[in-house]
């Protein structure tokens, strides 16, 4: 049996990759994908804990996260699409209309 720490390390690494992706990339799609990676890192940790503690509620959470991620993907992609249609760009640096 693989020890819990291995899973957690992997999860942390994936999460860090996701964070780096969000912080460094300019493309909205890539940022979006990085967020999905972070979510999955979380899922991995949840599953690992769930197995280690013998409690299935971790599994249940993972399903909720899946559902949320799916919804997010639907809405988020729609927004990106709409933005692209308006501005002909998916570069995050082109958009600072949320500025003060």
């Amino acid at each position: 049996m693989v020890p819990l720490e291995y899973y957690l390390t992997l999860s942390a690494v994936i999460f860090a990759i996701g964070v780096l992706g969000v912080l460094t990339s300019r493309n909205l799609i890539v940022i979006f994908m990085s967020i999905e990676i972070m979510l999955n890192a979380g899922n991995l940790a949840l599953i690992a804990f769930s197995r280690a503690l013998g409690d299935v509620s971790g599994h249940a959470f993972v399903f909720i996260v899946f559902a949320v991620a799916a919804a997010e993907a639907a809405v988020g992609l729609a927004i990106i699409l709409a933005v692209f249609r308006n501005r002909e760009s998916v570069n995050a640096d082109d958009f600072n209309i949320m500025r003060w």
């Binding site: 964070v19 969000v22 912080l23 460094t24 940022i31 995050a92 640096d93 958009f95 600072n96 209309i97 949320m98 500025r99 003060w100």
Partner: peptide, 14 residues
């Protein structure tokens, strides 16, 4: 204080 709101996604993420 509002200068913190740059409008750039990355700054918020940071």
């Amino acid at each position: 204080t509002r200068v913190m709101q740059t409008g750039y996604l990355r700054n918020y993420a940071l």
